[in-house]
Simulated assay, not measured.
Amino acid sequence: MSEKIFAENAPKPVGLYPHARKAGGLLFLSGIGPRKAGTDEIPGLKLDKYGNFLEFDFEAQCRSVFDNVKLVLEECGSSWDKLVDVTVFLVDMKRDFQTYNRVYAEYFKDNQPCRTTCAINALPTPIAIELKCIATAE
């Protein structure tokens, strides 16, 4: 049996799913993006009324995703250093991978989980990055 976890301080999921599920000694996080809790603001992004970019700062989105993952991990009784696997989804691999890789190296200097990076066509909101993570929950 697994336990569903909804993190109070993290952005709300955009569908019917929990932030995480704990099964055995593992914690499985749902896809987490850069939206800010309570406002759904996307850091580094401003759109016009037609949905076109007025401002775009991928690094701000990347840092916000990492901060949101940390929030969920901590509310679930785990922590950043207990991450064992990270899958990242990037909407624009050519534009954003180098920035992602540089910021990732800052955040994961000490803990180096397994990692997979996938280029995707789109995400359900106008974000450029989402992380799917597995951590230990002991």
Rank of each mutant, 00 (worst) to 15 (best):
F53D: 13
K49H: 13
A137P: 03
I127S: 15
F58Q: 01
I42Y: 05
L71Y: 07
E74I: 02
S30T: 14
K49I: 10
G38T: 09
K109Q: 09
V84F: 03
N121G: 10
G24V: 03
C133N: 06
F66C: 01
K82P: 04
N121Q: 12
E41G: 01
C118N: 14
M1I: 11
L90G: 05
S79V: 04
E41P: 01
I5M: 09
R35P: 00
I32M: 09
A20H: 04
P43E: 05
A122W: 12
F53G: 03
T99Y: 00
L29A: 03
S64V: 05
R63D: 01
P18H: 11
F58H: 02
Q112Y: 04
F6L: 05
E75I: 02
K4G: 00
K132D: 10
F56I: 15
P124D: 11
K36G: 01
T99A: 05
E74G: 00
P43A: 04
F53C: 08
E41A: 10
L45F: 03
T116G: 05
I5S: 04
P113Y: 04
N68W: 01
K132H: 14
F97D: 06
D40L: 10
K22Y: 08
L45Y: 04
I129T: 10
G15P: 05
Y100I: 07
Y104P: 00
A10E: 07
N111V: 14
K94T: 13
C62N: 07
K46C: 02
R21E: 15
K49A: 11
A23E: 15
A122L: 10
F58N: 02
V69I: 15
T99C: 02
D81M: 02
Q112R: 15
E41L: 06
T116N: 12
L73W: 07
G15Y: 11
K46G: 01
L71I: 15
K109T: 02
C62I: 11
E3V: 10
Q112T: 12
E41N: 09
K82G: 06
R102W: 01
S64L: 06
G44K: 06
S79A: 13
F89A: 08
Q112P: 00
L45N: 03
E74M: 03
L45K: 05
L26E: 10
P126H: 08
R95W: 10
C114W: 10
D96N: 13
I120M: 04
R95E: 14
K82T: 07
G24P: 03
N9W: 02
G51M: 08
F56H: 14
P126R: 09
A105R: 13
R21V: 15
N101Q: 15
N101A: 13
L83N: 06
L83V: 10
Y50M: 11
V91E: 06
A137T: 15
I129S: 02
K49L: 11
K4Q: 12
S79C: 13
P11E: 03
K46I: 13
A23S: 14
P11A: 11
V84T: 15
L131Q: 14
Y17F: 14
A10L: 08
C62T: 14
E74S: 07
T136W: 10
F108E: 03
W80K: 01
A37F: 10
A23H: 13
R102Y: 03
E106C: 00
S78G: 06
R102M: 07
P124M: 08
C114I: 04
L47K: 11
D57C: 07
R35E: 05
S79H: 06
R35Q: 12
G24M: 04
L27V: 12
